[in-house]
Design a protein around this nucleic acid. Structure first.
Length: 239
DNA sequence: CCAGACGTTGTT
DNA sequence: GTCTGG
DNA sequence: CCAGACGTTGTT
DNA sequence: GTCTGG
């Protein structure tokens, strides 16, 4: 799944890297973007304009915004059938701008904390996550624009950590996702990204709290001394 | 017909 | 809103 | 995704 | 344990 990600690029650099039109928008680098927060998205291929939508899709039928708090992901395998997602999939696909994301590996021991890992492209370039968006009309008459990130099976670099991952598009493919295309082509686009072009490493517990949003979240955590000694003695006993 | 779900994740 | 279950 | 709350009454 | 909030 995908429950936290980063966008450490500032708007100017991101525009240059992805060939986006100039915009007045500006933001601080983000190292720990969490559900319910506004996320940078592109809804239309024609304008490539960046807009911020709430992460957590609130379906049109919802009576309450809280329903969106758990709809942060949509499974690519079933997105066409689900009442909450299928209309958005057909008509409201979007890109979510990112340069990395986190996944947690569950501890084998019950109650032990999960270990977070950071995933990014080998060249550290920005990319897009596949998404769908929706407009919800609140009871008070206001509009809420919200988003879900599409997930697929994990590729080989994710598998040791987690069995799901977000659908990733690099800058060469991303705008195809926004075009009107036959459904079969859209389905084929929702595939695990090329493992060879990704990297990952362990990070510390800073990322666990959504209140921590600093470069400390993406700092590499070296394997602990205890684990090093264990693996060394296991693999290469001292003579 | 009306009532109630509609979603993902992980865990048991 | 729309579909499923009773 | 993880962190943190989770409840009522009456009184100060 | 389960739900809400970020």
């Amino acid at each position: 799944m995908c429950g936290r990600f980063t966008l450490s690029y500032k708007s100017k650099e991101l525009q240059l890297e992805l060939g986006l039109p100039e915009s007045q928008l500006d933001w601080q680098p983000r190292y720990n973007i969490a559900p319910t927060q506004p996320i940078a998205s592109i809804l239309r291929a024609e304008t490539k304009k960046i807009e911020f939508l709430r992460w957590g899709l609130v379906p049109g039928w919802a009576k309450d915004i809280e329903i969106g708090n758990r709809l942060i992901n949509a499974r690519s395998e079933t997105i066409m059938e689900k009442p909450s997602f299928r209309n958005a999939f057909a008509r409201r696909r979007c890109l979510i701008l990112a340069d990395g994301f986190y996944e947690w590996k569950k501890a084998k021991m019950k109650g032990a904390p999960s270990q977070p890992y950071y995933f990014h492209l080998e060249d550290k370039k920005p990319f897009a996550l596949a998404g769908i968006w929706e407009i919800w009309h609140a009871p008070d008459g206001s509009e809420l624009w919200s988003i879900a990130i599409i997930t697929c099976e994990a590729n080989e670099i994710l598998k040791p950590v987690h069995d799901r991952m977000p659908v990733i598009f690099d800058k060469n493919q991303m705008f195809n996702w926004l075009e009107d295309r036959p459904q079969i082509e859209l389905v084929e686009m929702m595939q695990p990204y090329n493992t060879e072009k990704m990297k990952s490493y362990m990070v510390g517990k800073a990322v666990n709290s959504p209140f921590n949003d600093t470069p400390a979240c993406i700092e590499e955590k070296k394997q602990s001394g205890l684990l090093l000694i264990k693996s060394r003695s296991f693999n290469a006993p001292i003579v």
